[in-house]
């Protein structure tokens, strides 16, 4: 201990104290602060980047899940659409069939009606023509028969008799 005290040099102590404190202050201002700040900034940057990557990953996951969901929905929709289409097709077909039958029946009915009408017309026409023809023939016959006035009168009388009888 005695040796230590004997060895102690005030000058060295003084210089060490002054120089060291100056060194601490200078380095604090010109070195440690900028160095630690840059390191902190870098670490913050790295942390941010990692966080961002994590967020992106999560987002990606969400997106994937979304995609999956949308795909499922689309598939279901397609299935329903197809089903609807099939049903619609069947409906249309059966409807068409029914309509066709109805139509056919109608057409047949119409055709029958027309035929009936034609037939009636034809019959009427035939009747008329037969009547005309008969009248013509009768006229001709009558004209021949009734060339003289006696016969005419006789006929009228006969006819009148007939009319009265009938």
């Amino acid at each position: 201990m005695e040796k230590l005290i004997e060895q102690f040099s005030l000058g060295l102590f003084f210089w060490q104290l002054i120089l060291f404190i100056a060194l601490v202050l200078l380095l604090q201002k010109f070195a440690w602060k900028p160095i630690l700040n840059s390191v902190n900034e870098r670490e913050k940057g790295i942390k941010n980047a990692l966080d961002e990557a994590e967020n992106a990953r999560k987002e990606m996951q969400n997106l994937n899940a979304d995609n999956e969901r949308i795909l499922k929905e689309a598939r279901a929709q397609r299935d329903t659409l197809l089903k609807e289409a099939r049903e619609m097709k069947e409906g249309i077909i059966s409807e068409a069939k029914n309509e066709a039958q109805v139509q056919a029946a109608k057409i047949v009915e119409q055709a029958q009606a027309t035929i009936e009408a034609e037939k009636q017309a034809a019959i009427t026409d035939l009747k008329n023509q037969v009547a005309e023809l008969s009248v013509g023939i009768a006229e001709k016959v009558v004209r021949g028969e009734l060339a003289d006035k006696n016969k005419q009168t006789k006929l009228v009388e006969e006819l009148l008799k007939e009319v009265t009888i009938s």
Binding site: L12, W15, Q16, L27, S38
Partner: peptide, 20 residues
Amino acid sequence: NVVFIIIVAVLMFFMFTRMA
């Protein structure tokens, strides 16, 4: 020793300011 304290101080100052 004081000379070497000065040398080390100067060395450190330049080393770390350069690093900064």
